[in-house]
Amino acid sequence: MSISEAESVVMEVLWRQAPRSAEEILAEVGPQQGWQEGTVKSLLNRLLKKKAVKAEREGRRYLYMPKLTREQYVSQESKGLLDRLFDGRIAPLVAHFSEQRKLSRKDVADLKKLLEELGDDQL
């Protein structure tokens, strides 16, 4: 499932708190995104078709809830990034970030700790 950047803004709202109506989503992200009600409803309809969200009718409105978890989304996006840009390998990704942005001592310590925790059985 491919989720656009705009759709991910809506998903972030729903991951923080659900269920939410289109109006509630618009109130939260509309002003900073420059979105109108029609934009939010279009994004919700696209997410419904992708089965990333579900909707339940409450009176005259619909309440939306995520079906796709944030963890599932992050996993899909991470794998896609690795596959597209780094041949599915993590080391070139880390090397790229260390060249583009200076890794802090804490970053390096966290990476070392992670490698130690993985141990030989996962390598």
Rank of each mutant, 00 (worst) to 15 (best):
D87R: 12
A55N: 01
R61V: 15
M65R: 08
P92Y: 04
H96I: 07
A95N: 03
L63C: 01
Y64R: 00
G59M: 11
R89E: 13
S104P: 01
D120K: 08
L68Q: 01
R101G: 01
L115E: 08
F97H: 05
L85N: 05
A109S: 12
Q72D: 13
E99W: 01
V94S: 00
Y64I: 04
G59T: 10
E99H: 03
D110N: 11
L93N: 02
K106G: 02
Y62K: 07
R89I: 02
E99I: 05
L114M: 12
A91Y: 09
G88W: 14
Y64A: 00
R57Q: 12
V94N: 00
D120G: 03
I90N: 00
G80V: 02
D83G: 04
I90P: 02
V94Y: 03
S78I: 12
D121S: 14
E116D: 14
E116G: 03
S75A: 13
L68T: 04
K67Y: 03
R60H: 07
L103W: 07
S75L: 09
S78H: 05
L68M: 13
R84K: 07
V94P: 00
V74Q: 05
S78A: 15
L82R: 07
F97G: 01
L85K: 07
D87E: 15
F86M: 04
G88R: 06
L114W: 15
Y64V: 02
M65N: 01
L114Q: 08
D120T: 08
K54N: 10
H96Y: 15
K67H: 02
L103I: 06
E99F: 06
T69H: 02
R70S: 04
G59N: 03
D107H: 11
P92R: 00
L68E: 01
L81N: 01
A91D: 09
L63S: 00
L63T: 06
S75M: 11
